[in-house]
Computed example of a mutant assay.
Amino acid sequence: MVQRIAGLQVLNSWEIIMTYCLNAMHTFVEDDGYTVIIGFSNDQFEPTKYVIIQQAKEYDDQDKNLGMDNLHIQVEDQSRSIYGGILEIAFENNHLTLSLDHNAQKQLKVDGNIKIKLPEKCKKNSDILLEIIKVARKNSIPTKNI
């Protein structure tokens, strides 16, 4: 049974799911030739909130058989991660919004979208947004205003 208490969705006595909002004070893009990692966090050195998107450049048969032939998204720790699940990526008023399917919401323990407020340096055509566009295109994820 799902209950709503003060805007929080309680699935059972030990699990609370809430909308995930992040004020990203630090962003980064790393490319090691095999994987592109795009990160957003509330602090560069001691983050308490973060979102990481990883995109492999190629997939082998094992990746495909295990359903790992898609982007990987993680929210704060490995237990809150999933391959795929992003329906749309939008950029508006310096906010990046990741619209998630129901399975991704459940796995990431968020109720709805992930909304990331980007630092002022992340304007249109910044490196981080260009990488987001590449990841979206590779995974056939629609984009809006990017």
Rank of each mutant, 00 (worst) to 15 (best):
M1F: 05
V2I: 10
G7R: 07
Q9P: 04
V10Q: 07
L11F: 07
W14S: 14
E15V: 14
I17N: 10
L22N: 05
A24W: 03
A24Q: 05
M25S: 14
M25D: 12
H26A: 07
H26E: 05
F28Q: 09
F28M: 10
V29A: 09
E30H: 06
G33F: 01
I37V: 14
I38M: 03
F40H: 06
S41L: 05
D43T: 08
D43G: 10
Q44W: 11
Q44H: 15
F45D: 15
Y50G: 11
V51W: 03
I52L: 15
I53W: 06
Q54D: 12
K57E: 07
K57F: 10
Y59R: 04
D60H: 08
D61E: 15
D61F: 13
Q62N: 13
K64W: 08
K64A: 13
K64P: 05
L66P: 02
G67P: 01
G67E: 05
G67N: 09
N70M: 09
N70R: 11
L71H: 10
I73E: 00
I73G: 00
I73Q: 00
V75I: 14
Q78K: 15
Q78W: 12
R80D: 09
R80K: 14
S81P: 12
I82A: 05
G84R: 03
G84M: 05
G85S: 02
L87A: 06
L87R: 08
E88I: 02
E88G: 07
E88L: 13
E88D: 11
I89H: 00
I89K: 01
F91R: 06
N93S: 13
H95I: 09
H95G: 04
L98C: 12
L98S: 02
L100G: 06
L100C: 07
L100D: 03
D101Q: 04
D101E: 04
H102Y: 12
N103K: 14
N103V: 15
Q105W: 02
K106R: 13
D111Y: 12
G112W: 00
N113G: 08
I114E: 01
K117Q: 15
K121S: 15
S126M: 10
D127I: 12
I128R: 01
L129D: 04
K134A: 07
V135P: 01
N139Y: 02
N139F: 02
N139D: 04
S140A: 12
P142M: 08
T143Q: 08
N145L: 07
